[in-house]
Design a protein around this nucleic acid. Structure first.
Length: 292
DNA sequence: ACCCAGGCGGGCG
DNA sequence: CGCCCGCATGGG
């Protein structure tokens, strides 16, 4: 085992709020082991572990990273938190009405995160018919039970990896139930096998949204909504517009006078209205809807 | 106690 | 295609 010493590196980002981003419940991987009030977050990235200390100053955030592999940590952080996204452009494109406008002001700097595809798949299989608090708890349990330790240069444990699909194949449905997965345990067992032996998630691309979604829906436990979540938060496909109970309710309330609409009708509505950056629109709607 | 949560698969008409 | 059901579990 080769150990690397941890180094630190700092930088500033415009129009970036790590607080809104993490609180918006999209990187479910931040399994509650963070201290957001003090801007402290830490998470595994493969076999690397990234510690983040962030300070907000107006619409700017200064970020300090600490990791054993700084190059990988910077790459991962920038990728995960959508730091390349042109927020001026995005805001101007999704700012179609007063509701979205206020959401943008309220959660200024919230990014759409792009996480590891398998990690996203597992998190959102767990998310179905569940609430955010419990999802994070179950994900945390999975990391603790099925992940592996990550060490610093002195052999001291600094964190734990997110379990790969292959690693999960060493366990079964009953093990997943013990970690709180409930009826989703059978989906997880099936998905772990499928994503290890039949579908290489790392060869899929966000370029063709329809094809990506079709492939993802072949996974047991992944339907229309979860596939959209994976497409958006695992691949960064801005064509995806996941409609969960919150988004559905909020759209009906804000755009249809509270009248019920089908998921299909809402998809059609969003497709035209926020074409190009649907994923971003969805995240602002979701986060606002949960906090009205 | 009752209701709900970032839904899905399966069965039915 | 649409509709309806069961599903595990913990928190409000």
């Amino acid at each position: 085992m080769k150990y690397y010493s941890q180094t630190s590196s700092g930088f500033k980002v415009k129009d970036f709020s790590i607080k809104h981003t993490v609180e918006s419940a999209q990187p479910l991987t931040f399994y509650a082991d963070y201290d957001l009030d003090n801007g402290l977050i830490e998470y595994p990235s493969g076999r690397n572990f990234v510690k983040v200390a962030a300070k907000a100053k107006g619409t700017r955030t200064s970020v300090m990273l600490k990791s054993s592999n700084m190059a990988a940590a910077k790459r991962d952080f920038a990728g995960r938190f959508g730091l390349k996204d042109d927020m001026d452009e995005i805001y101007s494109r999704i700012d179609t009405d007063s509701f979205v406008h206020e959401a943008i002001e309220r959660y200024h700097g919230m990014r759409v995160t792009v996480n590891d595809p398998w990690e996203t798949t597992l998190c959102f299989i767990i998310s179905q018919y569940n609430n955010v608090k419990r999802i994070r708890l179950i994900v945390k349990n999975f990391v603790k039970a099925f992940g592996t330790d990550i060490y610093d240069q002195n052999g001291k444990v600094i964190g734990r990896s997110f379990p790969t699909s292959e690693e999960l194949m060493g366990f079964g449905e009953s093990d997943f139930r013990k970690q709180g997965a409930g009826f989703r345990a059978k989906y997880i067992a099936s998905a772990a096998e499928y994503c290890t032996n039949s579908l290489d998630l790392y060869k899929l691309s966000a370029k063709n949204y329809d094809n990506l979604k079709e492939e993802l829906m072949e996974i047991d436990g992944v339907g229309d909504k979860v596939a959209d979540c994976i497409a958006l938060m695992g691949y960064g496909s801005m064509d995806a517009f996941p409609i969960d109970v919150w988004v559905k309710r909020t759209l009906e309330r804000m755009y249809f006078k509270g009248r019920k609409r089908t998921i299909k009708q809402l998809h059609r509505f969003a497709e035209k209205r926020w074409d190009g950056y649907r994923g971003y629109a969805q995240q602002y709607i979701f986060h606002t809807g949960r906090n009205i």
